[in-house]
Design a protein around this nucleic acid. Structure first.
Lengths: 250, 250
DNA sequence: GAGTGGTCTAGACCACGAA
DNA sequence: TCGTGGTCTAGACCACTCC
């Protein structure tokens, strides 16, 4: 029946959300703490269920809170991984049998699963960048501390890599870049495009993302000495789990 | 009264959202097209108002659709700006009287407003990076095609820049980097940290962001030849309006 | 003025988690 | 078992946009 009493003020659910957000920032609720639930808000403010839900939905969609069914709504916790752009792709890393990924996690244990290697018709953008009709595609998922954090999809021109270890699940020490070097197509230049957006439903489920979590999309192209593109790698990362770092001189 | 008929299927609102999403991807709705509204969904699926709203809220929170009050829900349009990381900060740009920003917009007109220059106590992180207690802070907002796309906040150590044009709204040709060079503290190295998250309410309103739009946060530190940090610049960008590009060699 | 999305109420049943 | 969040109905009034 009643609307917000004064027309030009924010609606009730906004004011409640603002209060909770402020309380979180002020430290009244710490990372992982349980927030007042729907019932608590209904009682405290004398509002309907849907309105209390709406207030909590604001924080959830902002990524500040995470709902846990049957338990409550909790303040979100962050533990970003630092991923070095320019530094991590230096030749020392993949030249000496280390996988690139090692450099990202700063010692934290990681896991790779959902590995799939297939030969496919190249999508339009991949065909344009790599300059070929058909590609080998390597898909996999990375997890840190038992939590999935990244989906990666690499494309390679068939003419370059067919018959090499790049076309099998485990490419051996040093990863695919070491194999490209073995084939005489060592990458010497990289371009990375960085975007951010909300995840598609399948991405959200594969990464275990709750509402209010964007993904960072990094699209990396690796070029060999001749100037040709030898790999196109699209990475979809849980934005709450990553900090990307790029260093460069003038 | 009725719930979703089969327990393990997705709820009604999800299925409707999925259908709409698929229709958008299939091209049945193009950028800027109007989607079926709440009333249309209620009639088509025989559902309550709140359920139709919930279905549309999914797409809105995914950033695929934008609600327009009194009008309808529309498919979102993207027009990203390409921002070059390593290339754009080359000395030619800011050494010759051009503002850095020119390189970003690829010829599209841009505007700067909400400029404020103040002297402040440094926040903890700024103090640590810049190694000083007090800082000059330059805040401003950038717009392209009449739409705000970026909020920027630069910090400078007081000892370095007090009395220079950096402490007034218009620092002159070449921008603050040209003035730092004039002062003998030309930046020679940059570090950029890139994150993504959902915007805080004030950021959303200053950037005019609708729900479902994340922001990209770039935190750039500029270092002079001696190795000291001379600027700390935090940029908050509408993620739907930007593609960041970084180039680097092995 | 008709139609749109925005907010709100007052109920209901469900699946799930913890005790 | 009980409280939690998840889904849904059937109404209501409002501000806004478009015609």
């Amino acid at each position: 029946m009643m609307q917000s009493p004064v027309p030009h003020e924010p609606p009730i659910y906004r004011r409640i959300a603002d209060r909770l957000r402020q309380a979180i920032k002020a430290g009244e609720f710490r990372d992982g703490d349980r927030l007042p639930g729907e019932n608590a808000l209904m009682a405290e403010y004398g509002i309907a269920r849907a309105t209390a839900r709406q207030a909590l939905a604001v924080l959830i969609n902002e990524g500040m809170a995470v709902p846990r069914r049957g338990s409550g709504v909790y303040v979100r916790q962050f533990r970003p991984i630092r991923r070095h752009g320019s530094r991590r792709l230096s030749r020392e890393q993949w030249g000496t049998g280390r996988a690139i990924w090692d450099g990202d996690t700063a010692g934290r244990p990681y896991a790779v699963d959902e590995i799939a290697v297939t030969r496919e018709q190249a999508a339009e953008d991949a065909a344009r960048v790599l300059g070929c009709e058909e590609v080998w595609v390597r898909r996999r998922r990375y997890s840190v501390d038992g939590r999935p954090v990244q989906l990666a999809t690499s494309h390679f021109p068939v003419e370059l890599v067919t018959g090499s270890p790049i076309t099998v699940p485990d490419p051996g020490p040093g990863g695919v870049y070491a194999r490209l070097r073995d084939l005489g197509h060592a990458p010497v230049h990289f371009t990375e495009e960085v975007r951010a957006r909300m995840p598609a439903p399948d991405e959200a489920s594969r990464l275990g993302l709750s509402a209010g979590t964007p993904v960072i999309v990094v699209c990396r192209t690796a070029y060999a000495a001749g100037g040709g593109a030898v790999e196109l790698n699209t990475m979809i990362m849980d934005a709450a789990s990553y900090v990307l770092q790029y260093d460069f001189d003038v």
